[in-house]
């Protein structure tokens, strides 16, 4: 949708189809990774947030450390995993968009889990107690907490999306930055395309792609912010 909304590019030294397909790869890979990551992160955040166990502090620390994990290292590890010589080699994932989804999933999950966990634990005990007192089951209480923590969780998803769509180190390694001869991107997303264009000295194209990336992040923030503003009333 954001892709179709791009204005026709006239008089610029590059193909609009090339740019469109790059943006499409970025959006589809990062959105898929963030949705999958959210599906995993939320239950984990709720489970950790709701239960008391030995080593909970350690688990939280590990999650928070994961937020700052260097993306090139993630890329290397994922490459070794999906390489034909690696444990997942039979799935034939190396240099595919799916491999990019995996590495962005790994990068986004600690962010979404960590921020959601903070949001969930931030919900005041009195609200939980009230939900229990009103005869709620564990599920009911969880739903109440999610409702109370929804802004924090949304922030978490947003932060995960920001981490996923703007990182370049891992997707360059596992995706291979492939575009076909006709200029259709396969595993080339906005960030890897920027490194390539800069390498070739085509700074205009690189700058243009950079502007699109910033615009996407701002747009998502704005859309989410609008919804959030409505929900606050």
């Amino acid at each position: 949708m954001a892709v179709e909304a791009l204005p026709p590019i006239v008089g610029l030294p590059f193909e609009s189809n090339y740019i469109r397909s790059i943006v499409r790869v970025s959006l589809s890979v990062s959105l898929t990774a963030v949705v999958l990551s959210t599906l995993v992160s939320l239950p984990v955040a709720l489970a950790v947030g709701f239960t008391e166990f030995r080593g909970k502090g350690l688990v939280t620390a590990v999650i928070n450390t994961g937020m700052g994990f260097p993306s090139v290292v993630v890329g290397l590890v994922v490459l070794f995993a999906v390489s034909n010589e690696g444990p997942l080699g039979a799935l034939d994932l190396v240099f595919t968009p799916q491999a990019m989804v995996i590495s962005q999933f790994v990068l986004a999950t600690p962010v979404i889990t960590g921020v959601s966990l903070a949001a969930v634990t931030g919900v005041e005990g009195s609200i939980r107690d009230a939900a229990y007192a009103m005869g709620g089951t564990r599920l009911d209480v969880a739903l109440v907490v999610i409702k109370e923590a929804r802004f924090g969780i949304a922030t978490a998803v947003l932060a995960g999306f920001g981490r996923a769509i703007s990182e370049v180190g891992s997707v360059l390694i596992v995706g291979g930055n492939i575009a076909y001869a006709d200029g259709t991107a396969y595993t080339r997303n906005i960030t890897t395309a920027i490194t390539l264009e800069a390498r070739q000295g085509r700074y205009e194209t690189a700058m243009f792609l950079g502007a699109i990336l910033v615009a996407i992040v701002l747009l998502v923030n704005a859309v989410v912010g609008r919804l959030g503003g409505g929900g606050r009333r």
């Binding site: 949708m1 954001a2 892709v3 397909s21 499409r24 790869v25 959006l27 589809s28 890979v29 959105l31 898929t32 963030v34 949705v35 959210t38 968009p97 929804r150 802004f151 969780i153 949304a154 922030t155 998803v157 947003l158 999306f161 396969y186 998502v220 923030n221 859309v223 989410v224 912010g225 919804l227 959030g228 503003g229 409505g230 929900g231 606050r232």
Partner: peptide
């Protein structure tokens, strides 16, 4: 930034997913 991201993101996801399939 005030946020209610899940709704927004799922909406975008369905769009992105179609494109990803075609791709």
């Amino acid at each position: 930034t005030a946020t209610a991201g899940l709704a927004g993101c799922t909406g975008m996801f369905s769009g992105g997913e179609e494109e990803s399939g075609g791709n």
